[in-house]
């Protein structure tokens, strides 16, 4: 487990979401309060957006 470095706000429920120190832009994290799937929009400063829905042509 990486050290938690920052905790931006969940855009859905406003809870703080912990990001690990190796977090990257476009990575998906989950809000532990509302279980929303969130996308890391920025790491410095940290910010989150609601993750896009899975599309029909995603995946291998």
């Amino acid at each position: 487990m990486q050290k938690v470095v920052n905790a931006p706000e969940c855009p859905e429920c406003a809870a703080q979401v912990s990001l690990e120190s190796d977090a990257r832009v476009s990575e998906i994290v989950e809000c532990l309060d509302c279980r929303s799937e969130l996308e890391i929009a920025s790491v410095a400063p940290p910010s989150l957006t609601v993750a896009p829905e899975v599309e029909e042509d995603w995946g291998e």
Binding site: D22, R24, V25, S26, E27, I28, E39, I40
Partner: peptide
């Protein structure tokens, strides 16, 4: 557009190797 386990590991490997790269969304 989405950094999953695989993309994160590849980027980390490039970092470890000291390779300059950009993430293109």
């Amino acid at each position: 557009s989405r950094v999953r386990f695989e993309e994160k590991q590849i980027m980390a490997a490039l970092d470890r190797r000291g390779v300059s790269f950009v993430h293109l969304d």
